[in-house]
């Protein structure tokens, strides 16, 4: 049975219909790559799933619980988010907190965890993303790639069952992309369930096991990563892949 099952997300901003009925099914351990041209609705899809945007309609099945994606009930939303992590395109690290504090803040405030224990977990996670020696640095003292790795450690702090990545490398200088993708690849290999909105074809091809191609707020084509790249069925998908891999 799927771990996360999404049915019929619709979302408009004013007159602009961004999502026009998207269904999505994710199994435990899946690494799903969502591709598509800008404006196709892939980021909005991710934000709707984690309630950063309120969908107009849509339901979600997660761990034997059904969620209404148009719900605005804080308790329900918090309940879902307890099991998820989110990594933003522009990192969104707390700029007044050190790398370590960024990881521990949620544990100590929301999780009511004692400082010592939170810091122990924080250091372990920073080590995992290769940022242990920068634990006391503020975000402004870190490169983009380093900030994003701290952000991944922060997303891992709540021990999530699924992590959403919203174009995690799009704001990075080309030479810094590798270190972030490396961390994501490691997570994938450890069996973390991930949904990744990305422009990185290499990552989609080599790390993800399931690929989704979106355009105009609908899923145009999806399938096993290998089949998707080797043998795309839809003409629009072929065109997109030609453009991206040129």
């Amino acid at each position: 049975m799927a771990m996360l099952e999404i049915r019929g997300i619709h979302k408009s901003f004013g007159d602009a219909h961004i999502l026009n009925g998207v269904d999505l099914s994710v199994n435990k351990g899946d690494v799903v790559a969502i591709l598509g041209p800008s404006g196709s609705g892939k980021t909005t899809l991710l934000r709707c799933i984690n309630y950063l945007e309120t969908a107009d309609q849509g339901t979600m099945q997660f761990k034997d619980e059904t969620y209404d994606l148009s719900d605005t009930d804080h308790k329900r939303i918090a309940q879902f988010r307890r099991h998820t992590g989110f990594v933003f395109q522009n990192y969104n690290l707390f700029i007044n907190k050190t790398a370590l504090e960024n990881v521990t803040l949620g544990l100590m405030t929301a999780g009511k965890m004692p400082k010592k224990q939170a810091e122990q977990i924080g250091m372990e996670l920073l080590e995992k993303v290769g940022m242990k020696d920068r634990a006391s640095y503020y975000p402004s003292q870190l490169s983009g790639g380093q900030q994003q790795r701290v952000a991944i450690a922060r997303a891992l702090a709540g021990n999530p069952e699924i992590i959403f990545f919203d174009e995690p490398t799009s704001a990075l200088d080309p030479e810094l992309i590798g270190e972030v993708l490396g961390v994501m690849k490691k997570l994938a290999e450890e069996g973390m369930t991930m949904i990744v909105v990305t422009h990185e074809m290499g990552f989609a091809r080599n790390v993800s096991n399931h690929v989704i191609f979106m355009e105009h707020g609908v899923i145009v084509e999806e399938g096993d990563a290998h089949a998707f790249f080797e043998n795309p069925k839809n003409e629009r998908t072929r065109e997109f892949l030609r453009m991206e891999e040129r």
Binding site: Y51, R82, G85, F86, F88, F94, L105, T109, R154
Partner: peptide
């Protein structure tokens, strides 16, 4: 203060007041 700070706080499980006072 950037809206992203709120979003990151929510995604870390924090509530409005916690984000307000700590971040």
């Amino acid at each position: 203060v950037s809206k992203g700070q709120f979003e990151a706080g929510y995604c870390s499980g924090m509530n409005y007041m916690q984000i307000m006072f700590h971040v």
